[in-house]
Every structure is written in C-alpha cells, then in structure tokens.
C-alpha cells in the first residue's frame, strides 16, 4: 500500500504530536477521567464489587459542614493572597526598576523567598510565629504587648498562613513584572515627560495597561497556587486548629491519605477542577478581550 503525499503529511504531523499526547494522556487526562469515575462509585468492602451511586457522593460532600468550612477558608485565602501579592509584586518591581543604589542586591533580596523550598520557608516562619520564643511575639513583648498565638488561635491562624504565602509569592511575581517593565521602551516615558504627564497619570494610562498581559498571567498563577497549597499547611498547622486553616487540596490529601477515603478525595478534586475551569473560561472571555497584547 502506498501513501499519498497528503496522508504522509498527516502521519508526519500525528507522529510529531505523539510524545506530548502520550505524556498528557498518561499523566493528565487518564487520571482526570479515573477521578471523575471514582467520584461516581462507592468502593466495595471485603471484596464486594464497587457500586455505582451517581451523584450521591456529591450530595454527601455538599452536606458536609467541614467541606464548606474548608471551601470558605480557601476563598478567604485566595482573596487574602492574590490581590495583596500582586499589588506588592508590582510595587516592588516598580521600585527596583528605577534608578537605585544597590539595585541588584534589592532585587535578589526580593526574589530570595521564591528560591527557598516551601518546606524551608515554612520552617523559618515557624520560628517567627512560635508562641513564646517566636520573633513576632518577642518584638511585641519589647513593645509591651502580650503575645499572640499566631498559629494556635483559630481567628488568627488563617491570617498567619496568608501572610506567609504573600511573602513567598510576591517575589516570584515581581520577576514577571520586572521583565515586563524592562521590555517597555524608555521612549514612552520620555514622550510623556515631554508632555508634562505626571507619574501617577503615566502609570495609570500607560504602564498599567501595558502590564495587563503580565497581570493576567500572574493572576492565573496566583489562583492556581491558591488551590495548590499543601506543603506549608503540612509544616505550619496541619489544617488546624479545628480546620481553621484547612484548605481544599490539603483536605483532599487528608481524605485520601489520612482517612483512606479515596472516593471523597476524588469528589472534592472534581469540584475543584470544575471551579477552576469556570474561572479560566471567565478569564479568557472577559479579561482577554480588554487586554492589549503586543
């Protein structure tokens, strides 16, 4: 059998796509599908076959107050970390992009939290937050205030986790902003200086709109990071006290590997996937249209 030129090209294209397709299928699509299937079945005990229960697992999940608490925690965590770390990253980038003595050192200092492994960073913050000997409480003690149980008090613990995440993420996002700022032609600033444009006006009319693609990219990253938190909870609070700092993915982890409840874990995972899909769709349909790409 001889192939026509057209079929040869098709085959050639398919072969080029094959490695990526195999990897994606093995590690992304198949697990996703298995997870969705798992979330629709109850496991059989003692050799009994698994039982198809439809959406019952979801029903159980939505009736579970812990799930709602964790989801609410995650929402607060997202609202607490995303805008703060992005705003902080932008400010830091603007700062180190200017004429500044020792600019390289400051840039490095800002970026250091990012290169630290999460576990190491969480350990450092353990020393800050520790009730008696911690840095924060010692500083407060010098000023004459009584200490706060940063990670033990349910009303403060989530805030403490958020503060650490902002510290960890802002430097990473700063690098993207800094790169974007440096690719902006300096003539734009000069042209607006000649028109007597104020710094403030220039920032809102030129810099910020031109950074919009970066902001969007960073926003998506921040969002993904917000539902991806496992490691610092593992070190800092283990989700406690009383689930005050428990977040979705850590809850998935607990269900799967502490309670050995794979079904609930799969169900939560599907819910997370759906929420992220909705957010991504919104991003592409609404924000993208208003963004200027160069």
């Amino acid at each position: 059998m001889s192939l026509t030129a057209y079929h040869k090209m098709q085959l050639y294209g398919a072969l080029l796509l094959l490695p990526a397709a195999v990897l994606l299928t093995t590690f992304a699509y198949l697990p996703t599908i298995t997870t969705v299937i798992n979330s629709l079945f109850l496991p059989g005990f003692r050799g009994a076959p698994t039982e198809f229960v439809g959406l019952e697992n979801y029903q159980v999940l939505f009736d579970d107050p812990t799930f709602w608490k964790v989801a609410r925690n995650n929402l607060i965590y997202a609202i607490g970390t995303i805008p703060t770390s992005i705003a902080l990253a932008l400010c830091m980038a603007l700062f180190v992009n200017g004429k500044l003595r020792g600019r390289g050192v400051v840039r490095m200092a800002y970026f250091t939290p990012t290169i630290l492994p999460m576990i190491a960073a969480a350990n450092i913050w353990m020393f800050f937050y520790a009730p008696q000997i911690g840095l924060f409480n010692q500083l407060l003690g010098i000023l004459g205030f009584s200490g706060v149980n940063w990670l033990g008090d349910p009303s403060v613990a989530l805030g403490s986790v958020i503060a650490m995440s902002v510290w960890k993420e802002a430097g990473f996002f700063m690098i993207f902003y800094l790169a974007a700022l440096q690719s902006m032609p300096p003539e734009l600033k000069e042209a607006s200086d000649l028109e007597g444009t104020s710094r403030w006006h220039f920032f809102w009319r030129v810099t910020f709109p031109l950074l919009m693609p970066t902001t969007l990219f960073v926003l998506i990253n921040a969002l993904i990071n917000a539902v991806r938190v496992v490691d610092h909870l593992f070190i800092l609070t283990k989700g406690g006290p009383n689930n005050a700092t428990n977040l979705l993915l850590y809850y998935v982890y607990e269900n799967a590997f502490s309670f050995f409840d794979g079904t609930t874990a799969a169900t939560i995972t599907v819910v997370i996937l759906l929420v992220l899909a909705v957010v991504a769709t919104l991003k592409f349909t609404i924000l993208d249209r208003r963004t200027h790409y160069q």
């Binding site: 734009l188 000069e190 000649l194 030129v206 031109l210 919009m212 160069q294």
Partner: peptide, 18 residues
C-alpha cells in the same frame, strides 16, 4: 522636559501601543 514648551518626534515614534 514638560515645562520647556517643546515637542519631540522620536526615531521609534514612541507611540503608546494600547
């Protein structure tokens, strides 16, 4: 520059792309 009462055309035009 803004107080000097002059305008300038740049080699790269310096137009605001957005």
């Amino acid at each position: 520059p803004g107080d000097r009462g002059l305008s300038m055309v740049f080699q790269s035009y310096a137009l605001f792309p957005h």
